[in-house]
Design a protein around this nucleic acid. Structure first.
Lengths: 335, 335
DNA sequence: TTGATTTATGCAACCGGTTGCAAAAACCTC
DNA sequence: GAGGTTTTTGCAACCGGTTGCATAAATCAA
């Protein structure tokens, strides 16, 4: 079915090597030969088999794009940015959905069978076993949106979740909130744990502030809504820091149903700054996570590792900032 | 770096063919040989190179997953379903983002270079040139969420957009709306065109209903909101059929800002039934598109084509149904 | 022209597997 | 234990490319 290099060689009346070289950047071919080859290739509709060549070159240009976040809308943006970025650099994303994978090693093995040149794991928590499995397979990995120093063998690009927790408290303090709350995502998520730790640490600098902590079962609208409904059975706090925008939006919906005005009665602070956070009617004050930069940097890092496989692991941490919208009251004049 | 079949063969003390056969389902190997091979493979940490084997078997188990919908949240669900479904069947999705591709043929060529066994194009409109390019390359394609008979060469799985347009009018009529409107997505989208055609056709059966038509610039919140704001400068219709849920949500936000109660003053009907449509506070009445079934069916069709390459093209059309929520007034008693 | 140098080309081996074929081994039956 | 079957095995060629090396062709200097 497919046209092969051999057929092109025959039609062009040259050796197979000549054809191969004609398609290789910087190889030694005369202009005349190349012209003949190109004409033959065009006539036959030939395009080289990337997989066959990977056999000898050792590069497939395939990059595993691994994630378990197929429910949070921010990740659509993440996938968009990753696929475009990789494509622009001639790399091909091989998508792996970890959602119902019981044994993550299977995924690593599969990626190895397909000889991916590298892998990006887009997840706040690196599944256990991934780091050693990739390491043993000799596949460069970067954990995008991952945790700083989650494993000394993998490169990480992300935000400082602890700093986000601290920033939340500072933000609340600057607006004069005295009774605040941390509403995390699933308690097992390291991102939630780190934010909580930062949140608690910063509280020590604000002895006049009282805080409570709770967790939603997932990073989802429903989970946020339900958790807020539960919290509203007792006296609510003055402001909530939710672990994620979509969680915040769920919480807002519960507050609205309960007749509590935002931000007058209760303030809400999200995290991510997903597109939806800016929608009219939501207008969520939130901590902006620099998604675009994280993705770009992850890709740069993967590229760097392709060039230099035993590059020393590093963690790249991007600062976050508050995006002022309407779910938190304005800065108190005192500050 | 990677362990090869040859090394396993040497360690196990058998020929390379024996090792190869041990890893091939249904090949003729004695239990004793297989045991020796498996032990050696385990000791060495060997796993076969899928790309190398594809060279002789002619199958890569790679499936191109092509889309340009990286902004509509429904598509995250679509990607989730596709990746899981393909993975379950031992296929690997090679993701292609068409968003900023000027020449779609490039993507087809790339997929051919990677010898994909098939491709799924998840898009309501098949990019021009795709059908012939895939056909020429001998790659089976299914256009998921595509248009019935968009091209006689490709298989299509989707809904009947014309029927959706008709259903919208019937739904409005049954609820006694007399001044209705069609708010399409981009005018160039075939999905919008087909829905409009159905909408107009059905109007003929309802001479007492007056209708108007307009288009939003994109299938997005902002576009829907802006278009509704524009429409509100004149007297609004009693009910709008929007081309997409996210468009509807934008429209709802404009209506709310304008102080028009929904569904009392103005009704809104969406299309897709994305997760967000069911969120409290949105609660959009919408036409449900059976996404899960479309994806499953697309995968089945791809599998069928792998087994039978010159299978005669077919279109699979799934019915849609109204999901009753709160943005349309209830059925009039008369009906 | 000639000889030295540079550039282009083809040969053949190789990448990591698979598979048709013929020979070898194992199993049956009598 | 002989003879016939069936199963297992290894050899060698092949899948579609790449690449080191030796040779041939082209270019250059004198």
């Amino acid at each position: 079915m497919a046209v092969t290099l051999k057929e092109v060689a025959e039609l062009a009346g040259v050796s197979r090597s000549a054809v191969s070289r004609s398609f290789t950047e910087g190889a030694s071919v005369s202009a005349r030969t190349r012209a003949k080859v190109e004409k033959a290739a065009r006539d036959l509709g030939y395009s080289p088999n990337a997989l066959a060549s990977s056999l000898t070159t050792g590069r497939t240009k395939l990059i595993g794009l691994v994630s378990n976040n197929f429910h949070n809308p921010v990740f659509l943006e993440v996938f968009d940015l990753f696929t475009r970025g990789l494509q622009e650099r001639g790399l091909r994303p091989l998508l792996v959905n970890l959602s119902d994978e019981t044994a993550p090693e299977h995924s690593v093995r599969m990626l190895r069978q397909y000889s991916v040149d590298g892998a990006v794991v887009a997840s706040s928590t690196l599944p256990p076993g991934f780091a050693p499995a990739f390491h043993e397979a000799g596949i460069p990995v970067v954990n995008a949106f991952g945790r700083y120093a989650s494993d000394p063998r993998v490169h990480t690009v992300g935000i400082d979740n602890g700093a986000c927790g601290r920033l939340a408290v500072q933000t609340f303090a600057a607006r004069g909130y005295k009774r605040i709350a941390f509403m995390g995502g699933p308690q097992g998520a390291t991102s939630t744990q780190d934010r909580q730790a930062g949140f608690m640490a910063e509280l020590e600098a604000h002895p006049d502030i009282e805080a409570s902590v709770s967790f939603a079962g997932a990073y989802s609208f429903e989970a946020g809504r339900r958790e807020m409904q539960r919290l509203l059975q007792a006296a609510p706090a003055e402001a909530y820091f939710c672990g994620d925008d979509v969680l915040s939006i769920g919480a807002l919906s519960a507050l609205r149903d309960h007749g509590l005005s935002v931000p007058e009665k209760v303030g809400v602070l999200g995290l991510n700054d997903m597109e939806m956070a800016g929608w009219a009617g939501i207008d969520l004050t939130t901590i902006h996570q620099p998604i675009r930069q994280i993705v770009t940097s992850s890709i740069e890092l993967i590229m760097a590792m392709l060039a230099e496989p035993d590059r020393y692991p590093e963690a790249r941490v991007f600062p976050c900032r508050i995006v002022e919208r309407s779910t938190l009251r304005p800065l108190s004049k005192a500050n």
